[in-house]
Design a binder for these strands. Sequence first.
DNA 1: TTCAGGATGCGC
DNA 2: CGCATCCTGAAA
Length: 214
Amino acid sequence: MDEQYNLSSAVNNRFFEQPTLELASSLLGCILVKETEEGTAAGIIVETEAYIGPMDQAAHSYNNRRTKRTEVMFHQAGLAYTYVMHTHTLFNVVSGEEGNPEAVLIRAIEPLEGLDLMITRRGMPASPNLTNGPGKLTKAMGIKMSDYGHPLTEKPLYLTQGIVPDSISAGKRIGIDNSGEAKDYPWRFWITGNRYVSRHQNADKIILNKGESK
DNA sequence: TTCAGGATGCGC
DNA sequence: CGCATCCTGAAA
């Protein structure tokens, strides 16, 4: 089977061990890959949000709440944290040191490979609508609850090096209006101007790429 | 803009 | 049990 992506270019555990806010912006431009019997789907991460455990009222792990659902957030960085909200599966990358329940929500990707597969899974023609939201991209990629706890350095669900964004924007997170003052933290990151970003908002801050490679 | 869908966790 | 939720698609 000939594959465009493989583990030799996968990101390593060191990458995941960055502080959560840095990881959330570093993940922009990385390639998310899911291999299944139906084929391989891959896309560039273009939007993320950081959730920082104990002090973050918007996080499931607020106040160190440790349940069957949040358990994996307490484990090592680089594992998959999936959960179901209403009818949708959402996908997060566990971050932070072991014992610190932190994670980065992947909110949007730009399709790179397996577009036909994504179209079939989503039941709609090609458009940004395929993957421009956290519940949409998991359906397009075939990410499910069975991926809970999977190490993202290994098949069938993994991350590889991708592009370095020219510009990253930061702003308030989406959909957490009931989370006290945490709702205003600028912990949402997106590739400036990318058309797969889930929704438009003015950036609190724009970070221009300094030119280092990944 | 509003609203239901219907998994999951948590408080009563 | 009842209620809220890191969402989405359809209806109005």
